[in-house]
């Protein structure tokens, strides 16, 4: 039981970040490989205002979210969007987002130094007992947030005009522009929201492991894996993927040791993709001649 509970809770963090991948993918068909650096960016932005006594903790968290979100919007506008113009085979955006990751990582390291710094904002200490397993409140908070935010996003896309616009833009941005919708703004909005999410995850995660430039790196591969297992096109996907990935990797590391935890998780991705390339909840698109 214990690995299941811990795994589910851990999966929450991955799910939150995976949601960020899904959000940019369903609107712009791109993924931000610099996501790990946005996690760090959020954490450090909050850390930078941590000493402002007049600002309540919530405000400090918001600063982290906003900084990551605004930088994210700019990255989309100037470094992703220009590299998506050559149709579906165009993957220059992928290379450019990897390059952004190099630049941000290097810059953060040079400014803040490589070692982790203690971050107390938004720290919730203590544990709760969940079906006989002690779970840290901080991680439980992350997992709860992941679920709540996912449900909110699903509600927005299914029920609101904004959601309709998002779905339309994701299917055909050019035609959407003929309907009076600016795909550029929708894309920037999606990136702002997605990177804001990454920043939020960074602030909360930094409270447990400290803020460091490389704090997002191990999360990147895991959360991208989660997003793919669930299906990049589905907002439910991260929840399912996060749960599966979290439980499986916890279980494997209990049984065979830490290194097998992550390996098992990544092998899960390969297995799922071989079986269903569009992910467990993804929708298959037919190729028409």
């Amino acid at each position: 039981m214990e690995p299941v509970i811990i795994g589910l809770v851990l999966g929450g963090l991955y799910a939150l970040l995976a949601q960020s991948f899904v959000l940019t993918f369903i609107t712009t068909r791109t993924l931000n490989f610099a996501l790990g650096e946005f996690v760090a960016l959020g954490a450090f932005a909050t850390l930078a205002v941590a000493s402002w006594g007049w600002l309540p903790d919530v405000g400090k968290v918001v600063v982290g979210v906003l900084v990551a979100g605004v930088v994210g919007a700019f990255v989309h506008r100037f470094l992703i969007l220009p590299f998506t113009t050559q149709g579906e085979h165009d993957v220059r955006w992928l290379l450019s987002s990897v390059a952004v990751s190099f630049v941000l990582l290097d810059l953060i390291t040079n400014v803040e130094g490589p070692s982790p710094q203690r971050s107390d904002t938004a720290r919730v200490s203590g544990t709760v007992d969940l079906f006989g397993t002690g779970v840290s409140k901080q991680q439980l908070l992350l997992a709860t947030l992941a679920v709540v935010i996912s449900l909110l996003l699903i509600l927005v896309t299914k029920r609101t005009p904004m959601g309709l616009v998002m779905r339309a833009v994701s299917q055909d941005p050019e035609t959407a522009s003929l309907m009076g919708v600016s795909p550029r703004r929708v894309g920037m909005g999606a990136y702002a929201a997605a990177m804001g999410l990454a920043g939020l995850a960074g602030v909360l995660y930094a409270a447990t492991v400290g803020a460091s430039p490389v704090m997002g790196e191990p999360l990147l591969v895991a959360s991208i894996a989660v997003a793919i297992v669930g299906g990049l096109g589905s907002l439910w996907g991260p929840l399912l993927g996060g749960a599966l990935y979290g439980v499986l990797s916890q279980f494997a590391s209990y049984q065979w040791g830490t290194i097998w935890g992550e390996t098992a998780g990544l092998l899960l991705v390969i297995a799922v993709l071989v079986w269903k390339p569009e992910g467990l909840l993804g929708r298959r698109t037919e190729v028409k001649l």
């Binding site: 470094l79 220009p82 590299f83 220059r92 290379l95 450019s96 990897v98 390059a99 952004v100 990751s101 190099f102 630049v103 990582l105 290097d106 810059l107 040079n110 400014v111």
Partner: peptide, 23 residues
């Protein structure tokens, strides 16, 4: 002294410039 890029970051910049200027 703080806001600068070292080799990895510079390679990242080079990568982006390549994509822009010499796709």
């Amino acid at each position: 002294d703080a806001w600068f890029l070292s080799s990895h970051g510079l390679l990242g910049v080079l990568f982006i410039l390549t994509l822009f200027l010499m796709p």
